[in-house]
Design a binder for these strands. Structure first.
Lengths: 341, 341
DNA sequence: GTAGCCGATGTCAGCGCTGTCTTGTCCTGT
DNA sequence: ACAGGACAAGACAGCGCTGACATCGGCTAC
């Protein structure tokens, strides 16, 4: 394959018999150029397969590029990729392109990856904070790069953020179970020590407290080992002498693990279940969930970034996206009577 | 927020009391600089929060960037996003960054998006071809940008490609059903007029043919309307006077639609089912599938791209990734005896 | 003693493009 | 007939960086 040279403005100019500046104008302020000149230049450009070099353009113009970075835990997760899809859709509609980088959900990964991305003179940086501290981004923010935290607020960093109504979603789900007569309601999550889960857990506890249940700890099973499925936590909870009549799960992975555990135990639909996060086959399985619109979340985050680029000086904003409950069966089960006394 | 200027080589040089070239060297060929000078420069760089401008560097150096583009139908699809995850992981391990763009699975989108991406002087372009013709990329390929087609071969374009063993997977699945005694085996897919589906359908037909079933058309339900779920196709097939005892579905969406349809008809596990593509809750639902490793597919594609960047002149390669069957229950059902004569 | 080399650093030009300023041409109004 | 303006196009510099080449002191070798 004989690689040929890429044509430059100069080449096009020579072929069209004009100056390079005129060619430049054709590709930027076309209305300043006489129509027939435009035609001649475009013909020449097409013949030479000319494509303006955005590197040179951006360098010359100074300022940020049209590229926006998104740092996520891992693409391999329904929540993240739908979020990414929402972001991508909105950004591309506004002419920005999206660079994604993943951190494997580790704090070290986050800073490394952020550094690599920021090298590229991003127009803005979107991220799902994982580390305990995003102060390392302060320098870049100070240089004018808008930074948007998604799903969790950034810590030690002034940044816009957009999160879910975690507390409200779980509070309402728990309340519904309580209203249906459930009193022994389990809560399972893994990981537990992240912002979102802390909020959800708070929603669960607050709802119970409103019904006079002050100590929910016997019904909580919290873990922080992503590598291990949550089956064990669920079994442990169900093995109690007074097993819960309902379970709330903190995210879709745990929900699916719970379904697996319930199936393995031949629970036969006795235990009510409401999971946080929707998932593809939840309707087939009849699983009630606390859901939200990840595409909308991504879209809102992208919008926030675009607005911030246009108005870097404005006050930062903290947005919340709604969550709601979808009833599909498992969440509407009444409390099972105790089979043994 | 008072936006401050970004430091340049020159600024660092002034502060460190050296020439800008020396600073440049510290960030590229550090071993050519005296150790104590390196320290002084690094200290100055840190103080000014200096970060080399990759735009200027790439412009000066010429040649492609470390950014690799990936054009996919839509991120909002388990197959695509796992593929993207595999690509991202491999690329970032080699120091490349990934720009993603989606086409909404439309041919027009593909060319538009490809054009936008190629403006950025990509190191390579990965894409899942949707349009009937990728000849519009010929120019760019000629300029030295490696192009890798994933999941489907590119048409009218010399490009590396990496696809699944579509034919073999479905051939084997069909053969297993035949071996178990099934003779009325349905095949459902939507969309049908894409390379992958054509291959899979061929696998189905060839397997039947090997058992003497020449005309499978009564058992095939092919559609090309992504907006509409496949429920109708499935019902139509099951409504036959002699309904199929087994069904093969061409992709995960159709599989899930089929599950829904079977549930709605209270099929109660009479009809055997094997679906192409795995999905998150397939094990919970006990669905047998023809599967593959989308992460590995992505990784292989990324590797191919990296190799091609290093050896642009080599022969293009066409790779196939293995598919295999995971038996979980629905595919192992024996043929149901006719309930009515 | 000096030719020759080496390691450390500097000078300069230019990658491809665009902002600013300048030049040139034609048209309008009086 | 000519000032003044509108429009089209060019000259030039420089964005931040790095490759090619130059410089310079110190050191080895004979």
């Amino acid at each position: 394959m004989n690689v040929q040279q890429r044509a430059t403005l100069e080449d096009v100019a020579r072929l069209a018999g004009v100056s390079s500046k005129t060619v430049s104008r054709v590709f930027t302020h076309r209305d300043l150029v006489a129509p027939e000149t435009v035609d001649r230049v475009l013909a020449a450009a097409k013949r030479l397969r000319f494509r303006p070099n955005p590197l040179a353009r951006n360098l010359r113009r100074g300022g940020p590029t049209d590229t926006i970075g998104f740092i996520m835990g891992e693409l391999n997760n329904p929540f993240y990729y739908k979020l990414a899809a929402g972001i991508e859709r909105e950004l591309s509609a506004h002419g920005f392109s999206l660079v994604v980088a993943t951190t494997d959900d580790t704090p070290e990964g986050e800073e490394r990856v952020a550094d690599a991305l920021l090298g590229q003179r991003l127009g803005a940086l979107l991220l799902i904070p994982v580390a305990d501290d995003q102060s390392y981004l302060e320098g870049e923010r100070h240089l004018g790069t808008p930074i948007i935290a998604i799903d969790r607020p950034a810590r030690n960093l002034v940044a816009d953020s957009i999160v879910l109504e975690n507390h409200r979603g779980v509070f309402e789900a728990t309340t519904r179970l309580l209203e249906r007569g459930h009193r022994r309601i389990g809560y399972i999550c893994n990981p537990a020590s992240v912002y979102t889960q802390a909020e959800r857990l708070r929603g669960y506890r607050d709802a119970l407290a409103a019904y006079g249940i002050r100590d929910s700890s016997p019904w909580e099973r919290l873990a922080d080992d992503l590598a291990r499925p949550a089956d064990g936590l669920i079994s442990d909870l169900l093995d109690r002498a007074d097993p819960p009549t309902a379970i709330i799960t903190g995210n879709n992975r745990v929900t699916i693990d719970a379904l697996r555990a319930l199936r393995d135990r031949d629970d036969d639909g006795r235990t009510a279940l409401i999971g946080f996060d929707d998932f593809d086959t939840a309707d087939v399985l009849g699983v009630s969930v606390i859901t939200y619109d990840p595409l909308a979340l991504g879209k809102a985050a992208a919008t926030l970034a675009i607005e911030r680029m246009q108005d870097p000086a404005g006050f930062t904003r903290q947005l919340e996206m709604p969550t709601w409950i979808v009833e599909r069966g498992t969440g509407e089960r009444p409390p099972a009577e105790r089979t043994t006394a």
